[in-house]
Design a protein around this nucleic acid. Sequence first.
DNA 1: CCCTAATGAGTTGCGCACGACTTAATCGAG
DNA 2: CTCGATTAAGTCGTGCGCAACTCATTAGGG
Lengths: 151, 151
Amino acid sequence: MSQAAGEPSEGWQLLDDQLCFALYAASRAVTARYRPLLDELGLTYPQYLVMLVLWEQDSISVRDLGTSLQLESSTLSPLLKRLEAGGLVRRERRAEDERSVAIRLTEAGASLRERAARVPLAIGDAMGLTSEQDAMAKQLLRLITANVTNG
Amino acid sequence: MSQAAGEPSEGWQLLDDQLCFALYAASRAVTARYRPLLDELGLTYPQYLVMLVLWEQDSISVRDLGTSLQLESSTLSPLLKRLEAGGLVRRERRAEDERSVAIRLTEAGASLRERAARVPLAIGDAMGLTSEQDAMAKQLLRLITANVTNG
DNA sequence: CCCTAATGAGTTGCGCACGACTTAATCGAG
DNA sequence: CTCGATTAAGTCGTGCGCAACTCATTAGGG
């Protein structure tokens, strides 16, 4: 166990013992691993997540996108504008409810799906987990998220 | 390979199946849980991590801080300036090597340690994991970080 | 019908996070 | 010793991520 200069450490407050830091470091490390792959597609990591949702379900409101990704409109609105500027999505007010904005894939956005197919495979490969470890990790992370979100 | 809207997805590229998203969501959820606690201390989450390192080992270079936290000097330099402006640390050039800057705690920075003692306990409590689950999660996250970083 | 509350999207301000770059100091081969 | 390469810290530009707020639209009680 590492110690403060001179005095013994008390055991609480050690960076390397904290799950929170392991989580923070792992998340950034994985995102960094995505970067070169996503650069080829002209996407950032959050933009890629938005595209994943749209490839699953085209024409979705900003609100529902926020629910899926747990992101605020203040994060999504500028991001979606950048995707629109890049020609991947269109934004149009809904006739039924003028408050709502539907996000739809353009042709370019839809066709990007094939080029992106290899990304999750490459990342899964880089993570190098067995399927049991992968399942365990997902389960634990979802448990943490659920506990920390409401509790 | 691509599908029309409405059809079932093929299993690759499903947001909810991806470990990377679970990681990203969990990391943000945990940080959000920290926020009200750290607000009372006048710290952000990355600032809190820097303070954790300093409480373990006072007088550390920006370089070594970056190695510990896996952060670039371009992230740390402005962050450390804000901590200095807040009166928690001092920055002084090292005599032995004028390129290097030593970060030292002020009195206020050192005494913040006691007030911060309850933070890891509160977070650990909120995560609600058994000690076995906690250990398993840390192990898996470190494995992912290690594999993804070099590989 | 009216008027207030709510809802959805967007704006602003601030603090990361990182790539690309700059500057200054040190190192090290010849 | 000299001078080109390396190293440490910092700056700049871009894109999140979120709190606090605004604005427009819709819902709903009286």
